[in-house]
């Protein structure tokens, strides 16, 4: 049985009066690709930020490689981040840097690479996500949404992280480009043997990326299983969500 890479136990997080995570429990095995699905505002992004130590839960425990994340100091946080990569929903590319400098940021700032070596490595990784070397010297603002996602993916994988987070990787892309990004994600995660946690509400993306799917609703994981199990489940919340029905137990509050 594979060892546990990330474990969340009874995690609570709220913002003012709004309770976002309410006793969340979740376990991700080493090398596994877990996709968390759920509607907007259910706490999916907060979940990732808590694991990364960007947000501190009020209660509960989060461990990565059996080391507690909640309340760690800055030095330990930097060490934790050195084994993580992240593809942000909007790309979060640095406007003031060129594409290759974005991709090679970790190599230049933290790994002591020389500029020429870092650029060569950035171009190699850009090629692996299907981008031409000519893109390297452009600024992020000159790229289309799909290209920005690819650059974000290249930045996330260049340091060969043990854990990769994908925050709504296909949002804002056309279906074909979304499928290209899904393929790249699967390829990158399997190629690196990394543990992946993806949050999305795009079901075709979830089906393609996931080894296992968990559904988040009102701050708790209410169901989890494989894609096959998801298709066979009678859980009314999951059935409503994957079929996109407006009628059902999930109230949208419109």
């Amino acid at each position: 049985m594979a060892e546990t890479k990330i474990k969340l136990t009874n995690v609570y997080k709220s913002f003012g009066k709004k309770k976002v995570l309410r006793g969340l429990n979740l376990e991700i095995k080493k090398g596994e690709s877990l996709v968390v699905i759920g509607g907007s505002g259910t706490g999916k992004s907060v979940l990732i930020k808590c694991i990364q130590g960007l947000l501190t839960p009020e209660e509960g425990s989060i461990t990565v490689d059996d080391k507690e994340v909640v309340g760690i100091d800055e030095n330990d946080k930097e060490a934790l981040h050195s084994k993580m990569g992240m593809l942000f929903q909007g790309g979060a590319l640095f406007d003031s840097l060129s594409v290759w400098e974005n991709v090679a940021f970790d190599l230049l700032e933290n790994k002591g690479y020389k500029k020429a070596d870092a650029k060569a490595e950035a171009i190699r990784v850009l090629r692996s996500v299907g981008l031409d070397p000519e893109v390297a010297d452009l600024s992020p603002a000159e790229l289309s949404g799909g290209m920005q996602k690819r650059v974000g993916l290249a930045r996330a994988i260049i340091s060969k992280p043990e854990i990769i987070f994908f925050d709504e990787p296909t949002t804002g892309l056309d279906p074909i480009m979304a499928d290209v990004i899904n393929d790249l994600i699967v390829e990158s995660v399997k190629g690196l043997g990394a543990t992946a946690l993806t949050i999305t509400h795009d079901m075709s993306s979830a089906r393609k990326i996931a080894d296992r799917i968990a559904m988040l609703y009102k701050g708790e994981i209410i169901w989890q299983g494989t894609v096959k199990e998801m298709d066979e489940t009678e859980n009314p919340y999951v059935v409503q969500f994957i079929n996109g029905n407006s009628q059902g137990p999930i109230k949208t509050g419109v």
Binding site: L54, H81, M86, G90, A92, L93, F94, D95, F105, N110
Partner: peptide
């Protein structure tokens, strides 16, 4: 989220 990106890049 560029500041979060900085943090996740150690």
């Amino acid at each position: 989220e560029q500041i979060d990106a900085l943090t996740t890049l150690s």
